[in-house]
Write a protein that binds this DNA or RNA. Structure first.
Length: 179
DNA sequence: ACCCCGATCGTA
DNA sequence: ACGATCGGGGTT
């Protein structure tokens, strides 16, 4: 059974949604990738989050309704793909950092490790920013019934956020599967 | 108008 | 462990 995840799925606690995204499928045209690594950016207090500096033209998406794509450029060359979570006016999103591409028979075609490499391979750019994750926007997330056990979910501090200070840089908001 | 820095990556 | 890289966010 293939269920397209909609606003209701994403409009919940960000850490909960982040863990549940593992094992879900990122679908783009005829490509299906099982999500294996994510990071949560949760609320205005999260000093690692762009939203900690308040609402700006860039971060406005994060304050908007859940289930939209937040895509931004980093280091002048890499697009980061995030899905907005939580309630309206509560800025939060989940960065998709790794996935495994499968064919129709669920055979592994390719592994994508690293958010920049993933978007480069899928040709994801700014054009998706602020659009709903749906068939209409051509990029969406599906539940295909894959069950992930809690013990399969690994966690660690988020990558590349040392600027966030001792407390927030150390939060174990990165969740991943050992494939 | 401009300065500064980064939710990375590849090489070592 | 570290440096390349450069667009644009945030502020002036």
């Amino acid at each position: 059974m293939h269920t397209v995840l909609t606003k209701d799925f994403f409009k919940r606690d960000t850490l909960t949604v982040a863990k549940e995204l593992l094992g879900k499928f990122l679908v783009l045209g005829d490509k299906s990738l099982i999500i294996t690594e994510v990071e949560a950016y949760d609320g205005h207090d999260d000093l690692a989050s762009h939203a900690s500096k308040g609402k700006t033209a860039r971060t406005e998406v994060m304050f908007g309704s859940a289930g939209r794509w937040y895509v931004y450029l980093i280091y002048g060359m890499y697009w980061m793909l995030n899905i907005v979570t939580g309630d309206e006016d509560y800025p939060a999103a989940i960065l998709i950092r790794g996935a495994v591409e499968l064919d129709k028979n669920n055979q592994v075609i390719k592994k994508y490790s690293g958010p920049g490499k993933l978007t480069k391979a899928l040709r994801i750019t700014k054009s998706l920013n602020n659009l709903m994750a749906s068939k209409k926007s051509k990029l969406w997330i599906e539940d295909r019934g894959v069950k992930i056990l809690p013990k399969q979910i690994k966690k660690s501090a988020r990558i590349g956020v040392n600027y966030a200070g001792p407390i927030w840089a150390k939060k174990e908001y990165r969740f991943y599967l050992d494939i």
